[in-house]
Design a protein around this nucleic acid. Structure first.
Length: 406
DNA sequence: CGTCCACAGGAATGACGGGCGG
DNA sequence: CCGCCCGTCATTCCTGTGGACG
């Protein structure tokens, strides 16, 4: 790119955007003042948590519904309002939102709870029980209510069991001055079956179900955001309708709908169009899918990437058995000068890849010829190639063109 | 009809980097 | 500084399994 073109590019970003008024309202972490078609849910949520304003124990709450049905937005909205109301009447209400997919382990959940109280916790080195002890004594000292929202709590329970939930729901028995309320949010409707009955009964003192949005409801949501986000006349109705229709066909996921709107706008802006057209939406759809997968893949641990590389080379379109995969994996590790993990470990990594939806696996019994797992990759070669070429360990092998024959 | 293949996946254990209290 | 404990990631050891083969 010549310097002049670059200058042009920069110049376009120095002035106000011809497309966007406020790009931020389309981001995931933006919580609008009004959530269309979730008024009832907000009230219910508020009813359950309001007693904290009197420093009373609230019922624990369990929320479930598919992705993009507004669970997180409602929770954060109510939490924010409650917190501000607390300030207004001079009562400290500790609110803590935790996404268990990002936070990941019991230890990190408890330390996140500590950090909303202002306690610094080292990222390793302490027993979880010790961190919990500090949390309890600090909360007891403050004497104020604490509300913790565990978003995607099913992920945590699947990996670590329901021990932490059991501890958290019983913690009130040891607190004299303060109250802990647990709100669990789950995408998985069958999550309840993983819970110990005692945990289930105390966690779901109150329950809410979020239904998917209909196409019309998604349209309303988009309309609200589009008005805030774009300059007048930039985002035509036909484009908006297309976005709602595409999202509604994907189980009424409002988040995906907003992604479509945002990315379509970005594409239009980058290409210098004065309005966002339907073709930009289709392009946005492709880009989102690609970016999502790429993001997941590129943050994978090295050995998982090596496994993907083997799958990419050996059988981009067909299945491979776990035994053959492991053999190829070993030889590639040798070539890369990387230590080789055991078969057992590789098996676990493979299960993680399957969980992420990157590969399909299926156990196959071949009778006399043993039992194996058939593995098939689900990611497009193009995305994989991009991941490999950007990985410091794999780019050499990949760029060297020595794709076959290791 | 029993055997036995070639793995799956659970449990126990170890190495490592790190914080804590004394 | 030391001895101890922790969480995490990996290894080692192990039992389990469905069906083609003999």
């Amino acid at each position: 790119m010549s310097a002049d073109k670059l200058e042009c590019l920069f110049e376009r970003f120095t002035g106000d955007s011809p497309i966007f008024l406020n790009h931020d309202v389309l981001r995931h972490d933006f919580i609008p003042d009004e959530l269309p078609h979730r008024e009832d849910e907000i009230l219910r949520f508020g009813e359950v948590l309001a007693p904290s304003l009197r420093n009373l124990k609230c019922s624990n709450l369990f929320v479930y519904g598919k992705t993009g049905t507004g669970k997180t937005a409602v929770a954060r909205h109510v939490l924010g309002r409650l917190y501000r109301k607390g300030l207004e009447v001079g009562r400290r209400i500790n609110v803590c939102y935790i996404n268990c997919r990002t936070v990941g382990t019991e230890y990190r959940v408890v330390s996140a709870m500590c950090s909303t109280l202002g306690i610094k916790i080292p990222f390793t080195g302490l027993a979880t029980a010790e961190v919990l002890k500090r949390f309890k004594s600090c909360l007891e000292f403050l004497g104020s209510p604490f509300i913790v929202v565990l978003d995607e709590v099913d992920v945590l329970v699947r990996n670590y069991g329901d021990g932490i939930l059991y501890t958290l729901t019983r913690i009130n028995e040891e607190l004299k001055n303060s109250r802990l309320t647990v709100v669990g949010i789950s995408n998985d409707l069958y999550f309840k079956e993983m819970l110990d009955p005692r945990v289930l009964s105390s966690l779901s003192e109150e329950e809410m179900v979020f239904k998917p949005y209909t196409a019309e409801q998604i349209r309303d949501i988009l309309l609200q955001r589009v008005r805030l986000a774009f300059r007048p006349g930039v985002f035509p109705e036909s484009t908006l309708n297309l976005c709602s229709a595409l999202a509604a066909s994907e189980h009424g996921d409002a988040r995906r709908a907003l992604d479509l709107v945002r990315v379509a706008g970005e594409i239009a802006e980058r290409q210098g169009y004065p309005i966002v057209r339907e073709e930009h939406v289709y392009e946005a759809k492709r880009k989102i899918e690609h970016d999502r997968v790429f993001e997941v893949l590129s943050t994978l641990p090295l050995h998982s990437k090596i496994l993907l590389y083997v799958l990419y080379v050996e059988s981009p379109h067909h299945e491979i058995t776990s035994g053959r995969l492991y053999e190829s994996y070993r030889s590639l590790c040798g070539r890369l000068g990387v230590e080789v993990l055991t078969q057992r470990r590789v098996s676990s990594l493979l299960n993680e890849l399957a969980m992420l939806g990157i590969v399909n696996t299926q156990i196959a019994n071949l009778g006399r010829y043993g039992r194996t797992k058939r593995i098939k990759i689900k990611v497009s070669p193009k995305t994989l190639e991009k991941v490999f070429s950007e990985d410091p360990h794999l780019s050499d092998v990949f760029h060297g063109g020595v794709v076959k024959g290791f």
